[in-house]
C-alpha cells in the first residue's frame, strides 16, 4: 500500500513522494532523493539529519515526539514546536497527503 506525502523545500517547491506504508518517512524521503533528508544513522534517532517540520494540520495525526527524539531535536539548528525526526514517523494510510517542511539545515 502506498500513500502520497509532500516535502516542502526551503525554496517553496514541493516534492511529492509515493511512500510505501510501513517505511519510515525518512526512508521514504531518502529513497526518493529528497534534499535535506539524510538519515545518517539509519533510523535510530541518533543523528538528527532527517529533521522536518510537520504541517500544523497534520501534527495530530503524525503524533508527538517521544522522550529520546525530543532530546535529539534540541540538537537541530532551529527547533520548533512542530519539529520531528522523520525516521520516527511511520508512513501509514492515515498519513495520505501528509505535508512536511524540510529545514535549510542539511540541504
Amino acid at each position: 500500500m502506498k500513500v502520497e506525502v509532500h516535502f516542502r523545500l526551503p525554496d517553496n517547491s514541493v516534492r511529492k513522494v509515493e511512500a510505501t506504508c510501513g517505511l519510515s518517512l525518512m526512508e521514504a524521503g531518502k529513497q526518493a532523493g529528497v534534499p535535506g533528508i539524510i538519515g545518517d544513522c539509519g533510523g535510530g534517532a541518533m543523528c538528527a539529519t532527517c529533521h522536518v517540520y510537520v504541517d500544523p494540520d497534520w501534527q495530530d495525526r503524525a503524533g508527538e515526539p517521544e522522550a529520546t527524539e525530543s532530546l535529539m531535536l534540541q540538537l537541530t539548528e532551529e527547533q520548533r514546536d512542530n519539529s520531528r525526526l522523520s525516521c520516527q514517523i511511520t508512513v501509514e494510510e492515515e498519513l495520505d497527503g501528509l505535508v512536511v517542511e524540510v529545514p535549510e539545515e542539511h540541504i
Binding site: 534517532a45 541518533m46 529520546t68 532530546l71 535529539m72 534540541q74 540538537l75
Partner: peptide, 8 residues
C-alpha cells in the same frame, strides 16, 4: 539514549 543525546 538520554545520556547519548545529552552527551552531544
Amino acid at each position: 539514549p538520554i545520556n547519548f543525546v545529552q552527551a552531544q
